[in-house]
Simulated assay, not measured.
Amino acid sequence: MPHRTHPFSTLTPAFIMDAVESQGFACDCRTLALNSYENRVYQVGIEEGEPLVAKFYRPGRWTDEQIVEEHEFCAELAGHELPVVAPWRNAAGHTLFHHGGFRFALYPRQGGRAPEFDNLDNLLVLGRMLGRMHRIGAVTPFAHRPTLDSQSFGRESVALIRDRFIPPDLRESYAAVTGMLLETVDATFAEMGAVRYLRTHGDCHAGNILWRGDAPHFVDFDDARMAPAVQDLWMMLSGDRPRKLAQLDSLLEGYTEFNEFDSRELRLIEPLRALRVLHYSAWLARRWEDPIFPATFPWFNTPRYWNDQIIELREQVAALTEPPLELP
């Protein structure tokens, strides 16, 4: 059973406003919880000013150095006029603040709608933005934030699920399919040889892109990490193979206007997808004591979920054996 008292339960409207006002703002008593699970994010009304977005970080996930490094990456991108929503910086130059045992950051409110990945013109624009972003991201590596690899995303995820969550009657099947999956993932990376890792958004899906006017705005760099460039591209692909090829063509047409792309990385799309599937289940498992997770994801950790998970992983093993996407 989830704990009844979770650290986030202390984030009352009064606490949130006190935290924001500790940075010199005057709140107008309006707070609105925004859609966020890993952290807690609120829109806070400001007297005689535009509302701010206050992001309270999940305790224990990142170090201060890792959070500040994320903030500095966003500021660097914004400094090159990329449409990135960077955190507010106070007069002392700080972007990470502490209040009542929590760490938080403040952001300007950014409106917009989800991007239409089926619109090839939109993908062309997104490709250009990501090409510029990765050109900057490749200049220097992260010093504190992690690297996307099969150990952290794959093996550690599998160990957690196998030891604490998978039903006993499914444990053997789960172990077999995940073992085969990770073996194939590792073999693919090994066959690739040297792959360039750079600073990436890391979680570049539709929920982290807001389309406003004719341009996308990238938000929530909470999962920023060192990864191959294709990590920020593959989540925009969907549909059957011809459709994915058309989407990829538009993305890379825009991307290569500003940055080179190693076409060998297309072989990593399915391995990266496999790691994401494993990591997602482990993410839900690690957060299961947070009351918002059982309430929001009631289907998780049921026999049906684990049966479906094993089927999905078997399908992913099959996908890893198919020819990778290739452009002429």
Rank of each mutant, 00 (worst) to 15 (best):
E253I: 01
P242I: 06
M226A: 14
R276G: 12
L268I: 05
R243P: 03
A229Y: 06
I209K: 05
A227K: 13
L266A: 12
S263P: 00
D223W: 03
A282E: 04
A227F: 08
P242N: 09
F221N: 00
A229I: 03
S250R: 13
E265M: 13
E257H: 13
F261V: 10
Y280M: 10
E257N: 09
V230D: 09
E257D: 06
P228C: 04
P216K: 05
M236S: 08
P228D: 03
R276P: 11
Y280K: 08
Q231N: 14
A215N: 11
H217F: 04
T256P: 15
K244I: 01
H279W: 13
E260G: 15
E257L: 15
A229D: 03
L251F: 04
E257F: 11
L245I: 04
R212E: 14
Q247H: 00
L245R: 01
D249I: 00
E260K: 02
S263Y: 04
T256W: 02
V277E: 12
D262H: 02
R267G: 05
D240F: 03
M226C: 11
P242V: 12
R273E: 15
L278K: 10
A282P: 07
L233G: 07
R267L: 08
L245M: 09
A215G: 07
V230K: 10
R241E: 12
Y280V: 04
H279S: 15
R225D: 01
L275Q: 07
L245T: 01
T256L: 06
H279F: 15
